[in-house]
């Protein structure tokens, strides 16, 4: 093995080198198992109610570590991710807190929710008309926009 492997030839290295991104793999899955297991339990309404009734006791029941508990208690989404939380499961916890994915995005990017939504909408400016909108037929590049037929 060469001592320095390009991320292009080593996909595992790329998991830790995409800006602003950490890909959820075995290392994180192991670190976050208890936290994610608790979040998975929130598919059940009774479990959501039990968490709301006594958050600390519910976290203890699932064997959360000190760092898991601290991140949950602080509603600190970046910390939850850092201790192995996976966003698909954390979304169920966020639902209990009344947070949607724009709220989560704002919390993680240091923006207000309005600023985060504006950033999402601004991406539309990057969309070429040949790509955006409704197109019919095999050659969208040459087809005129055909919204009026929708």
């Amino acid at each position: 093995m060469p001592s320095q492997v390009s991320v292009r030839t080593d996909p595992r290295a790329l998991r830790r080198s995409i800006p602003g991104t950490v890909l959820f793999d075995g290392e994180l899955a192991e670190r976050g198992f208890a936290l994610n297991a608790m979040c998975y339990s929130f598919n059940d309404a009774e479990n959501r109610a039990a968490f709301v009734a006594d958050e600390e006791a519910y976290c203890r029941k699932f064997g959360l570590s000190e760092e898991h508990c601290a991140a949950v208690a602080a509603r600190d989404v970046p910390a939850m991710l850092a201790v192995g939380g996976n966003v698909y499961y954390l979304a169920k916890l966020a639902g209990i807190f009344g947070l949607n994915v724009q709220d989560l995005g704002a919390l993680q990017t240091g923006r207000s929710v309005a600023e985060f939504k504006a950033m999402l909408s601004a991406t539309r400016d990057l969309v070429d008309p040949a790509l955006g909108g409704l197109h019919f037929g095999p050659d969208p590049a040459s087809a005129a926009l055909q919204r009026e037929h929708a």
Partner: peptide, 19 residues
């Protein structure tokens, strides 16, 4: 959805896929 890059979209790659 997650990380400091939350909100990232890439119309250029999407176009590559659709094309």
């Amino acid at each position: 959805l997650e990380g400091a890059r939350a909100g990232f979209m890439n119309p250029e790659y999407d176009r590559f896929c659709l094309d």
